[in-house]
Design a protein around this nucleic acid. Structure first.
Lengths: 238, 238
DNA sequence: CGAAGGGTTGATCAATTTCAATCGCGGTGG
DNA sequence: CCACCGCGATTGAAATTGATCAACCCTTCG
């Protein structure tokens, strides 16, 4: 069985067969989630480190007004905060976007893995650095890009991440995003997202179907977004 | 001499006198920076961990169009990414906003400190969790809050952080923010920031002077922003 | 068949940006 | 001491972006 978590970490470091076996054991019993099902909610006690093995998920926060803001997408291989267990409770929620399998690695197991295996610790820290760079890139997008640039930039990011993590074997890159999810991620209304997507479709940059977006012309998207891929697969020291 | 970095970490954990001495030695020779002077630039080779001891600084990114987006404010005690040294080069810049003193802790020194002293490591990880929560809160603000709510929310955040870090001994809380810096942080134009600040001043929430904002009525700001302070001083496990 | 959850479209409204001037403090050099 | 300069602050008017409101459609699924 392919393990997307181990595959992702191995793009950062080399593991020994023993380490791979331990990581496999730690992610051996994932839970299944349906689309729109919460994995953990704001205010819940923190516990294990969650790792998405299959499917997509997101982090989000609900405002008093009832509107939602998505702050991150997680695809196979991605994990929630490493040290989240140091805090008493969650300050945001996580939810599945597609049918998903998510492993819950107990805090003690994760601590032990990282303490005894420097390569595991190093890989986790690198993953976290990329996650933080991604948060910063989102802030830049929301602050200084027009709506069409924002949409294009997010699609570039997700397309590239999907590629880097080997989620997509072939050329076809289908992102499982409804227009409503896109609106919640980009701080726009579904109506306006719809019109921006129409423009992008008419420009030949993508194809649309219910609940999915197919990236058709990455060059065009990159150009519209002013996308600089550097922050996602940054060169590593030593 | 008061060391704001040690003071901040001590709000998370207890240190032994020996640990305090080591941290003091590590931050003993800070560099001075003038307002608008860069501490490190996007593209520079990564090196030491920077710690702001006095004054304010920010992280920012310049877009191809020349506009700037600030992604974080650093006040005395705050540090840049712990593991940044694992990457070859910076993906964003840092710059002083006021006259500042910034210590550069060599990567090896920091690694040793954290490996040999679990309490230092724990404090640094907690600080990083709060930083990440702050990034998420910014995304929520930029995505789903109106301009006056955004401004009020940021001022609440900075006011509370200044208090938590003991930057402000007395009631007076003067934030060293020009309207241009505020605009770059919130993704708005200086013109619009100016009008929003006028409204807030007329509501009695704050006072303005060139390059500074004095918070006058926190209750009013909190109410306008819908501010939930939980993410900044979250309860810690164990 | 009915209901739910997207998606699509048009018309109108409101929030922000853009453009263009002007003001004024504070530091600098003559 | 005074004139000048640079940067930030302020104001008004016009232009633009994106939100809001209101239907309506379509597909899926029980």
């Amino acid at each position: 069985m392919h393990n997307s978590f181990i595959a992702k970490l191995q793009s950062f470091v080399e593991f020994s067969p023993g380490e791979i076996a331990m990581l496999e054991r730690a992610t051996a019993m994932p839970m299944r989630y349906r689309p729109r099902q919460d994995i953990i909610r704001e205010g819940d006690k923190t516990g294990p480190v969650f790792v998405v093995l299959e499917g997509w998920a997101c982090r989000y926060k609900i405002l008093p007004s009832g509107t939602r803001q998505i702050t991150a997408f997680l695809m196979p291989g991605d994990a929630c905060d490493l040290h989240i267990g140091m805090l008493e409770e969650m300050d945001h929620s996580m939810q599945a976007l597609t049918p998903a399998r998510v492993a819950a690695i107990p805090r003690g197991t994760m601590d032990r893995l990282m303490r005894d295996h420097a390569s595991v610790a190093r890989a986790m820290y690198l993953a976290q650095l990329v996650d933080e760079a991604t948060l910063r890139a989102w802030i830049v997008s929301m602050g200084r890009r027009s709506s069409i640039e924002r949409v294009a930039h997010l699609l570039c990011e997700l397309y590239l991440r999907a590629h880097l993590q080997g989620v997509v074997a072939d050329e076809l890159v289908e992102l499982p995003l409804s227009q409503i999810v896109l609106a919640d991620a980009l701080g726009m209304t579904p109506v306006h997202i719809n019109r921006v997507l129409r423009d992008l479709r008419e420009a030949g940059a993508l194809q649309l179907s219910r609940g999915r977006i197919v990236v058709a012309d990455t060059g065009k998207l990159v150009q519209i977004a002013g996308f600089d891929e550097n922050y996602l697969h940054r060169r590593i020291n030593r």
